[in-house]
Design a protein around this nucleic acid. Structure first.
Lengths: 144, 144
DNA sequence: TATCAGGTGGGAAAAAGTGGGAAATTTTAA
DNA sequence: TTAAAATTTCCCACTTTTTCCCACCTGATA
């Protein structure tokens, strides 16, 4: 299971090392896409297959309008990139994805069960603070 | 069953020894996560599976589409850590968790049936004092 | 007092993360 | 079409962090 938070640097060549704890589960190739919220999602190949199958399945239970679904898929698939992990555990983050979430020199890498999220470090700490506040309300809501 | 209270130090390398009485039950790997209130929860792997399954919408591969669920999972898993217990019964407490509850040099380690809580020592004694007061009030109320 | 168990501290070795140069490849321009 | 320039890939090396192991301290017990 992918859990925990790590702060890593992104160097001038757009390289970012993945936390050792994530490497085994992520394998050799990963899919990186713009996520929901101000972050990127990283999926294993397997997980991505699951997700993409479900997303493109026209009779899924998402109750999307057709046009909405088309647009959403365009968003998710159109900007997804398959990325190899190099021999010492680093990946290359495409420029357009970096720009999309305002990545600078450092990134927060966050394990969320079966995906990894990549955040601008500052935005991540803001997000955390916000979540902290909402956590109680959220827990109650979900409990229903 | 995990019961009792211990005060242990956290050294410069973020190491904290677990009370011998807890070690057998906790096993070799544990999950440590921010709990409710100003403390950390330590779960056995088994217990964690139970808890996380209950709280996350684990049957749904697309849970990230729902904002509430996304936020909650991020909160839940992003701040958990899987930690190994070393050969002499110590664990490493990740910095981001230390910060989260303001851990300094000493921690209160408290057994609460099937989980362990870790507190900033001072906050723990405040918490205890508060609980005692409430207990008295509660007892009186019940007596009526 | 000697011994043992639980807890603490520190040094050396190993691993993880980071940076940079050279080779290989692709792109650009003449 | 070829050569120069730019980019990407591969590899090596440095620095910091983590891990492993050993030793010490303290209090309880025989």
């Amino acid at each position: 299971m992918l859990i925990g938070e790590y702060i890593h640097t992104i160097d001038e060549k757009n390289r970012m090392s993945l936390p050792v704890k994530f490497r085994k589960e992520l394998g050799k190739k990963i899919i990186i896409t713009p996520g929901l919220g101000q972050c990127l999602f990283i999926f294993t190949n397997k997980e991505w297959e699951k997700v993409s199958k479900k997303l493109s399945d026209s009779d899924n239970d998402l109750s999307f309008l057709k046009a909405d679904q088309r647009n959403f898929n365009r968003y998710m698939f159109g900007r997804a990139a398959e990325v190899e992990i190099d021999s010492i555990g680093r990946i290359l983050i495409p420029d357009f994805l970096k720009e999309r979430i305002g990545l600078k020199n450092t990134a927060a890498i966050v394990g969320v069960k079966d995906r990894v999220e990549v955040w601008n470090e500052k935005k991540w700490s803001e997000e955390k603070a916000l979540a902290e506040k909402q956590a109680e309300a959220l827990a109650e809501k979900l409990a229903k």
